[in-house]
Every structure is written in structure tokens, then in C-alpha cells.
Deep mutational scan, measured.
Amino acid sequence: HNGKLCKLKGIAPLQLGKCNITGWLLGNPECDSLLPARSWSYIVETPNSENGACYPGDLIDYEELREQLSSVSSLERFEIFPKESSWPNHTFNGVTVSCSHRGKSSFYRNLLWLTKKGDSYPKLTNSYVNNKGKEVLVLWGVHHPSSSDEQQSLYSNGNAYVSVASSNYNRRFTPEIAARPKVRDQHGRMNYYWTLLEPGDTIIFEATGNLIAPWYAFALSRGFESGIITSNASMHECNTKCQTPQGAINSNLPFQNIHPVTIGECPKYVRSTKLRMVTGLRNIPSIQYRGLFGAIAGFIEGGWTGMIDGWYGYHHQNEQGSGYAADQKSTQNAINGITNKVNSVIEKMNTQFTAVGKEFNNLEKRMENLNKKVDDGFLDIWTYNAELLVLLENERTLDFHDLNVKNLYEKVKSQLKNNAKEIGNGCFEFYHKCDNECMESVRNGTYDYPKYSEESKLNREKIDGVKLESMGVYQILAIYSTVASSLVLLVSLGAISFWMCSNGSLQCRICI
């Protein structure tokens, strides 16, 4: 991952900044910058967002509201009850120091605090018919004063009620008058409520006091790749198909172990950190130390980045220098085999997901714990399936590479015959000098055995068991695999060879 928040398929997220979902939807004055928000790819909250409900109280069923919003990608904020005409018999300019803005008392931008007009609070009834052709999110509140005197001074009615009804919602609220500790300079409380109004449905408000009335509502448009994440990451000019709280993932790998919460087309989250597919040879310690064997393909974004291909070729060293050249036929066979294998694994496992966190309130801790156990169970199954699949494929890959290298080895052996000696570690020792032209003939299969047989015969008789390297004779190393990324691999195959001279070296080696 890149540690950044990015656009998702070209669409920017909605960053709530210092506000949370509650503050944004109710219209906390400190969240005025969010009022123009219309569309987004996903919503970003920060872990310690401080601006929620400015007048103390709870947004009821907040967790369910977050779940609903996680599939919303755009909205239209509109005046559901026009301020100047909807409440002619009531005062609608209630403000509070708890919702101060720029040093002055204020109130929510989407709600109206209705109080008595003169000395009376006549029963009010108002309704709205949803003609938007889509779901409408309606929010309101109920004020709970701290004393009967406060109730009387604001609403005149000691036994007030609030009723809200639609086809799918029907509740009646009565204020709970009680002494409470002071929070944000208030002994009173406000509880906030919401409902989704279906197209064509009607919502009716009736009250004799204590109503925090809707002013603006939201017509919602769903987008199934949307979601809500909690993150401290910063926004950058970048684009992605998959976003996590820790950063964007741009990967076609089937798995990731970065974060379980994802938005967009994302690899499946697994616990494993070692889900690797081999593309090189079986481990040979001396070669492995030099980083030549054991190439791997990573299938977990965050564990290993991208696929690494092994390729086969020849390396030689003689009086004229040293050089490398790919054996294109065996390399292409290996590439085709690995590509098919990788595609097979991805096809089997690479279903892209959006995974969002589930919200539970403080009273639902047991449910949250149960949900976590269920999620953990599914996660263990996914991890096991992934590891088992790759384990089985790896064994076949190792066998496949062994065969490829063996074929190259036999190709060289059949040409050199007794003009060189096998020394048991995949290397041959020449009994004759071999210049670049000679080396090329070994690589392309045109090695002239009779041409060098007499010199080889004489050297075999002279050496008589002495280690060949100390006599200045020449080696050919018969097994060799270097490691390159897919891009470098293609470039390498396009070149005939490249040279690395070893000044004054008397050794001649050709490596497979």
C-alpha cells in the first residue's frame, strides 16, 4: 500500500475532517465546509473527530445509520420544511452556546429548535410527501429539559409530546424532565432520530412541544462500492481501485494482509504473511546465498510486491572476458508455465471484495464479540484455502523447474562428451581453451567436438587428477538461474548478450 488516501476510480472521497457522521448530518456549525458535499467514492472519518452533536445527546440507531450510509455515493440536500413558512405559530430561531460559531450562539444547520411564540405553543402538524424518486433521509430531535421551569419557559406545556409517523415508522416521544450533570454547559439533553422515507411515502410530524424540527433532508443515491473508513492518512493526487484505512492498494494479487476493511475492488484479506509461490528452483544453499535460486511470486499485497520470474541462460568467462545470454527457448517455456500457473491461482482465488467494518453500540458488546468470532472463522478458512492451494502448486513448480534445468544440462553434456569433466555440482571442467566463438557454439548447439578432442585428450593426460582450476583450465557451469522482474525479464530476452569482463582471468566458464 502507499499510505495515502486516493480517488477511487477517479472519484474523490468525502473527508469529514474534524467532524464525524453525526456532526455532518445534523449540521454542526463547525462542519459548515461539508454542506456543499454532493457525491463521493467513500467517506473518511478520523479516529478522534471532535465535532459531532454540539448540544449533548445521542443519535439513536447511529450504527444502523452508518451502515445505511456505507452504500450511499451521492445525496441532494434540500429544504424539507421551509423555515419561514412551515411554522407560522412558533418561534424557530432557537440557539445555544453549546453550538457556538465564530463566538456567537448558533444551532444545527439542518434542524430548527421550535419554541413557544408569545406565551403559547399551539399543537403543530406538518407533513412531507417524498417526490424525489429515491429514498429521503429525514432527521429530527426531541429536547429533554433539566427542570419543569425550563419546560414551561420554552414550550408552555408541561405534558408535551412529539409524534412522527410514516408508512414504515411510527413513534411517540415524551420529554424526560430530570436533573443531569452539566455537559457542554447544558443540564438538558437532546436525542436525535432518523428514518428513511421511501419514494411516494408521507411523513407526518405532530407536537405540542420539545420538537427539534427537520429543516433540511437528504435524497440518497446508492453506490455499492462506497463505504466509510476511519483513517488518519492524508489525501493525495492519486487514483486506485482499492482503498484501505492504511493506504491505497493497486494490485491484481488475490490476497492482502494490510487491513480487513477495504473499499472498492480489493484482494481478499488473509492473516498469512508467507503466502508465496515459487518460480525458481529448489533451494541450493551456495546459490541461494548469491540470490540466484528460489525466486518467488508473492500473492499477498503487503507481504511480497508483485511476481518475480526466474529465467535460464548461459554465463561464460574466458580470456576475452565474461558474458550472459538467455536461453530463449527454455526461458519462454518457463515463463509460459509460470504465467499459466499464476493465472490459474488468481482465477481460482481472485474475487474482488469490498469489506466494511460493522458498528455496534456499547450495549451490543456481546453481539460485536460474536460477530468478530464469526469473521475470524471465515478469515481462517480463507487463509487455509489460500495456503493449501499455493503449497500444492509450489511442489509442481519445483518439479517443473528441475526438468527444465536438467534438459539444459543434458544438452551441454551431450555436446562436450569427454572434452570436459562433470564435477558433480552442476559444473563441467573443460580440457581445452574455449574462446567466445567456442562458447557461442555450446550455447547454440553447434559445438565442434572433433575440433577440440585432441587438445582435450592431451590435457587429460597431463592433469592426472590435479585440480583443474589450479592448472588454468576452464570450467563450464551447467545450471544457472538469475532473477529478474517481469519487465526486466522481457528486456533481457530482447538482448543477445551483455558482457562482464574479468581482467586477466584465465578461467573459461559457460553457465546455464
Rank of each mutant, 00 (worst) to 15 (best):
S231K: 06
N232A: 13
A233W: 00
A233I: 14
M235I: 12
H236T: 09
E237V: 06
T240I: 03
C242D: 04
C242P: 06
Q246K: 01
G247F: 02
G247Q: 09
A248L: 04
I249R: 02
N250M: 01
L253W: 00
N257Y: 07
I258W: 00
I258A: 01
H259T: 13
P260A: 15
P260E: 02
G264Q: 10
P267M: 09
K268T: 12
R271F: 06
S272Q: 08
S272F: 05
S272P: 01
T273V: 13
T273F: 08
K274A: 15
K274S: 14
K274V: 02
L275C: 05
L275N: 05
T279I: 10
L281K: 04
R282P: 03
I284C: 09
I284K: 15
P285C: 02
S286K: 02
S286P: 14
S286C: 04
I287F: 09
Q288T: 13
Q288P: 00
Q288R: 13
Y289V: 10
R290S: 00
G291P: 01
L292S: 04
L292P: 05
A295Y: 02
A295L: 08
I296E: 03
A297G: 11
G298L: 05
G298W: 12
F299K: 01
F299V: 10
I300P: 02
W304K: 00
T305M: 00
T305Q: 04
M307K: 02
D309T: 05
D309W: 10
D309C: 05
G310R: 15
W311V: 06
Y312C: 04
G313M: 05
Y314F: 15
H315W: 11
Q317V: 15
N318S: 04
E319P: 01
E319C: 01
E319H: 04
Q320T: 05
S322C: 08
A325R: 01
A325Y: 13
A326E: 03
D327L: 03
D327Y: 04
S330H: 01
T331H: 14
T331V: 06
Q332L: 09
N333H: 14
I335Q: 06
G337P: 00
I338Y: 04
T339C: 01
N340F: 08
K341Q: 05
N343M: 06
S344A: 15
V345R: 00
E347D: 13
E347Y: 02
K348M: 13
K348A: 13
K348H: 13
K348F: 02
K348L: 11
N350Y: 09
N350Q: 14
N350S: 15
T351G: 14
T351N: 10
T351D: 00
T351P: 11
Q352S: 01
Q352L: 00
F353S: 08
F353L: 11
T354V: 14
T354P: 12
A355M: 15
K358N: 07
K358D: 01
K365V: 02
K365G: 02
K365C: 11
K365Q: 07
R366P: 09
R366E: 11
R366C: 07
E368P: 02
N369D: 09
L370N: 06
L370C: 08
N371Y: 13
K373Y: 04
V374H: 03
D376W: 08
G377Y: 09
L379Y: 12
D380R: 05
I381V: 15
W382F: 09
W382Q: 06
T383E: 13
Y384K: 04
N385W: 13
A386G: 05
A386R: 01
E387Y: 05
L388P: 05
L388C: 06
L389Y: 03
V390T: 13
V390C: 10
V390A: 02
L392Q: 10
E393G: 09
R396Q: 10
T397N: 06
T397M: 10
T397Q: 04
T397P: 04
D399A: 06
F400P: 10
H401G: 05
L403H: 14
N404Q: 15
V405P: 05
K406I: 01
K413S: 08
S414T: 13
S414I: 07
S414C: 10
Q415A: 13
L416I: 15
L416P: 11
N418K: 08
N418M: 12
K421N: 15
E422T: 08
E422F: 07
E422A: 13
I423N: 08
I423K: 11
G426T: 06
C427W: 11
C427R: 15
F428D: 08
F430G: 09
Y431D: 06
H432S: 06
K433W: 00
K433C: 08
D435M: 02
E437V: 09
M439W: 02
E440W: 12
R443F: 02
N444S: 13
T446M: 11
Y447A: 05
D448S: 15
D448C: 04
K451M: 11
Y452P: 05
E454A: 14
E454S: 10
E455F: 12
E455Q: 12
E455V: 10
S456A: 15
K457S: 13
L458T: 12
N459I: 15
N459W: 03
N459V: 10
N459L: 11
R460A: 11
R460S: 10
E461S: 12
K462F: 01
K462L: 09
I463C: 00
V466Y: 11
V466G: 02
V466H: 03
K467E: 15
L468S: 14
S470Q: 12
M471S: 08
G472F: 14
G472E: 09
V473F: 11
V473W: 12
Y474E: 07
Y474K: 01
Y474N: 05
Q475P: 12
Y480Q: 08
T482R: 01
T482G: 15
T482C: 04
T482H: 02
A484I: 11
S486M: 07
S486N: 04
V488S: 01
L489N: 00
I496P: 00
F498L: 10
F498Y: 15
F498N: 12
M500E: 04
M500T: 09
M500G: 13
M500R: 15
S502F: 08
N503A: 01
G504D: 02
S505H: 06
Q507I: 07
C508A: 14
I510V: 14
C511G: 04
